[in-house]
Amino acid sequence: MDNILPEKIMKNSLLITRFLFYGNRVMILYLFAWVFFHATIDHPKSLNAAKITVLNRLLPSFVHLTGIMDDQEVPDKKKLRGCIQYYEKVVLYMPQLAEAYGLLGFCYYHTGEKQKSLEAYKKAALLNPHFFWSHYNLGLIDYKEGRYSEAVESFQKALTTQPEVNIKIINTSMIYKQILLGSGHDHYDITTHLRNGYAAVRLLLILSYSELKALKQTDQRNNRNDPTAMLKEKINLRPF
């Protein structure tokens, strides 16, 4: 009995000593600050407000982007860097926006990051399988890289999309509206571009098939006898 009491007192005094030791340390202030900030800040609200501000702060000028789309400007890595940063954040905060992935793919392509471009377009096609341009651009990159069977698959998917649906998607898309407003374009002829795109896909499909056929043959082809050489010259082999 006499042995237990001193042991208990010793244990308690050890605890008190420990408490006084740590209670007098700066880590207690850290703990207090952590509790204080978590109790006072509305974290989801602050985080959402900060995300919106990040996007507004990173919003680039789209003049160069539309210049590339219209074949008026040569892609400039530094100018596209701002667009890449912006769209990377858009897809991070709003991962359901297929158009953002598509534009990110476009920017990656023109800065030479082909693999990243391919992945972005794949994501865009997955999120919105009805959007013509995702399949078109995916097929185009595969075609240029020599992956003709994948290109054929993408071009076929592109041809199954409906033009009216695509026009509606572009007209209602917040992402595309930003580009039109930011670039100073009063009017963008979506219909003509889409018509040209569908025509290009048909030609690209023919080219892809002929490339696949040529690969199966063993003898060398002479370019001068290649019936598709003229077609290749007419096609604009850059993503949109």
Binding site: S46, A49, A50, T53, V54, K89
Partner: peptide
């Protein structure tokens, strides 16, 4: 109330 210290800190965290 649109923007204060908390939002500024989160902004820095996101970037």
């Amino acid at each position: 109330t649109e923007w204060s210290i908390g939002e500024e800190v989160y902004f820095s965290y996101l970037l």
